[in-house]
Simulated assay, not measured.
Amino acid sequence: MSSARGLVAAQSARFAALDPLLPPAAEPPGDGHVVTAALADGTRVAGVICHESFEPHSTTRLWSAAEVWELLPLVGTAQGMDALLSRFRRYLDTQEIGEDTACVVHWPSRDTVAARAFLDHGLVPLSVLGVRLRTPVSPMPRTLTIRRATLSDLDSVVELSLAELEYSSLVGSTIVRPEAPALKRRALTERLNNASPIWLAERDGIAVGLVECAIVVSEPGTSAALRLPQGRWGYVNCVSVLPGARGSGVGQQLVAHAHHELHRTGVVGTYLYYNPPNPLSSVFWPRQGYRPLWTVWEVRPASGLR
């Protein structure tokens, strides 16, 4: 795209005006399908459509369709998203599209003009990347025992992780597939063996809650740099509370503990993904200091794009 560099610069300027935490727009990959559109004022917008399929035993399939078409827009200004999504739809007409498929666009949450275009084309905000800058964590009353999980806790960790997956599948993008227990056990075994930051909350010796985290470094050339300001970040990957213990403060105590421990490692902030349609997390996470940075707009199956 000969005009790509100018569009990237214009998009970076718009991102900075929308939200100071957004990183600059990135150059689009060179291996996707390029789409362009002309606007009424003569300006042009462009985008790249990337296609990816995930193998049956990939953990990615627990939160994604098996086959995904992602649009990476370069609209530069507030205009043009509608035209670009129409080109996206025309491109999909040339593809064979099954049921286990999706169309996805990651876009800054504060761009309400683009949000209107996404809704008009049948996409819905299934996930949000929320961020919380490092702030002092006030001590709170502790009614639970919170400790680091070890490999001997694997059964409890897997049970809690699967409980979160099952609930999220009702209100978000995750999918409970037949291979989910085995995939979760394999992934969590590896993380526990690597001493990943995972904490359990216990009441009377019984595990009732889990918070699973990671440390992610955003620097030039990394995938994290596409979404986050540069620096060392804490990633809150999964918070799960057993159904019978929900609403009793388990999640709040766990997250406060995780924030404290992650801050001790020198992170600039923490981030996570939550589902806006989730009646629990959509209220819980803003109360813990998180606010939307990116919205993941999605439609399943991909043929549902209008």
Rank of each mutant, 00 (worst) to 15 (best):
L144N: 05
D153G: 07
R132N: 07
T59F: 15
I49L: 15
V113A: 12
P301G: 11
V157L: 04
P279A: 10
H33A: 15
A9P: 01
L254E: 03
P181G: 05
G231A: 13
G130V: 01
P108S: 06
S173G: 12
L254T: 01
R116Y: 14
T295Q: 13
H259V: 00
Q253L: 09
P178Q: 11
L154P: 02
V113I: 15
A180R: 00
A245E: 08
A302V: 06
D82Q: 15
A225S: 13
S127V: 05
A207K: 00
R287A: 11
L62T: 01
G98D: 12
A224L: 13
M140A: 09
S303D: 03
L71F: 06
L62S: 02
Q11I: 05
T270E: 15
F54V: 00
R147D: 11
D82F: 10
S58L: 12
G244E: 15
V216C: 04
V158K: 01
P56D: 15
L71V: 04
W233Y: 06
R5L: 13
A46G: 09
R177A: 12
L293E: 01
Q230E: 14
P139N: 13
L162G: 13
G221K: 08
Y274K: 06
E96H: 05
T112N: 07
L123C: 13
L170K: 14
R232L: 10
T143D: 11
V299W: 04
A182Y: 14
S86E: 15
T59E: 14
E219T: 14
M140K: 07
V131S: 04
P28M: 12
L162N: 08
P276C: 08
L242C: 10
V255A: 07
R232E: 09
P56A: 13
L162R: 08
H259E: 02
P276E: 06
G47D: 03
R203A: 09
R44I: 05
R246G: 05
S138R: 13
T270R: 00
T60V: 13
T94W: 11
E298W: 01
L242A: 14
E202Q: 14
A245H: 09
V268P: 00
G251A: 14
A117P: 00
V34L: 14
V208K: 02
F15S: 01
D155I: 06
S282W: 05
